[in-house]
């Protein structure tokens, strides 16, 4: 149990923007529930003759932890264990060492961890748990997968943190994540955005690189987006962040687990329907990639569809421009 100092220092207390999102999300959810009680009752469970979700098997072998494997023991910010993200877990240490912790450069390790989580761990709607459990299972929500990435990086002594925001999504994502379940759809539509989404960020060579480890390549192909790389953002790609909601956190905050638990208690059927839809879409994405001639060929096509690359402009003040007022 964390003491008060740890709670404050590690950022376990939700930020004001986070609380605001939770309150708005909670109120909107209550309204949807109250106005749709009968439908919710019907949707709570999947009918016995309905399609059920079956979790795919883990996509990797679990390496054995051995005494003497190195891990970062720093208590510095972004390097210490936080809620659900204990990188001192033997499984995290074993995987981090297998990925080259302390043997390769920070960038190489961040790339390896990124590819491991993005390509070998699978998206699945479920409640929050500790990172070790996630790695044993090999599946999880974006928060589980980000946590796995952050834990691996911290274990290798590379600073990593959460970037959390409310967002709305492009149509092809909406069709797959929101549309399949009437309850989720009503909630999203009533708010106009999705309450919480996240990405990881890792500090490499003095620069925070974004790591969107959530969607696998097949999923991205099914939604027509590019196969993102380390440093490429979901924002402006398939998500748009709601202004004023962007938060950088060392830890997942208190309350996140409870809110996800509540959602799974209220609407387990809806969560399962989202998982069924995601599995079907990943299968479709697999076919799209094959038809395109492989992963690289698909990515080239998707990037061409996106339009040409834009320069990035950092607004810097200039001595020649003066403002009166």
């Amino acid at each position: 149990m964390a003491n008060l100092w740890e709670i404050k220092a590690n950022g376990y207390m939700p930020q004001r923007a986070y609380l605001k999102l939770m309150v708005n999300g909670g109120m909107s959810l209550s309204k949807v529930i109250l106005l749709n009680l009968r439908e919710l009752r019907r949707l709570r469970v999947i009918p016995s003759d309905g399609e059920r979700y079956s979790r795919p098997s883990r996509q990797y072998e679990i390496p054995t932890f051995q005494e003497g494997m190195r891990s970062c023991r720093s208590t510095e910010k972004y390097l210490r264990p936080t809620l659900f993200c204990d990188h001192h877990d033997p499984l995290v240490i074993a995987i981090a060492n297998e990925l080259g912790a302390f043997k390769v450069s920070d960038r190489e390790f961040a790339e390896a961890a990124y590819h491991f989580v993005k390509e070998r761990m699978l998206l699945e709607e479920r409640t929050i748990n500790d990172v070790g459990e996630t790695l044993v299972r090999g599946t999880g929500t974006c928060f589980h997968l980000i946590t796995a990435f952050i834990a691996l990086c911290r274990c290798a002594g590379i600073k990593a943190r959460y970037k959390i925001f409310a967002m709305n999504m492009i149509r092809s994502w909406y069709d797959v994540v929101i549309q399949p379940d009437p309850f989720i759809k009503k909630w999203y539509d009533s708010l106009g955005y999705f309450v919480l989404e996240g990405e990881g960020e890792v500090l490499v060579d003095g620069e925070w690189l974004v790591a969107n480890v959530g969607p696998e390549a097949e999923w991205q192909a099914a939604t027509g987006t590019t196969i993102t790389k380390l440093g490429e953002d979901s924002i402006g790609n398939w998500f748009n962040a709601v202004p004023g909601t962007m938060m950088r956190m060392e830890s997942l905050p208190y309350g996140l687990k409870a809110s996800l638990d509540l959602l799974h208690t209220i609407a387990p059927g809806s969560m399962e329907r989202v998982n069924i839809s995601m599995a079907a879409q990943k299968e479709r994405g697999r076919r799209i990639i094959i038809e395109a001639g492989g992963l690289e060929a698909y990515d080239r096509l998707a990037r061409a569809r996106q339009g040409p690359r834009m320069p990035k402009l950092k607004l810097e003040s200039m001595k020649q421009i003066t403002f009166d007022g």
Binding site: L313, K314, L315, E316, S317, M318, Q320, I321, T322, F323, D324, G325
Partner: peptide
């Protein structure tokens, strides 16, 4: 962007030495 940032945007897109430019208003 708009407002003061628009002025900075123009200035940062521009190549070379800008003249002195005074912009009024908040």
């Amino acid at each position: 962007p708009s407002g003061k940032d628009f002025a900075l945007w123009l200035a940062n897109v521009y190549t070379g030495e800008l003249p002195q430019i005074q912009i009024k208003g908040a």
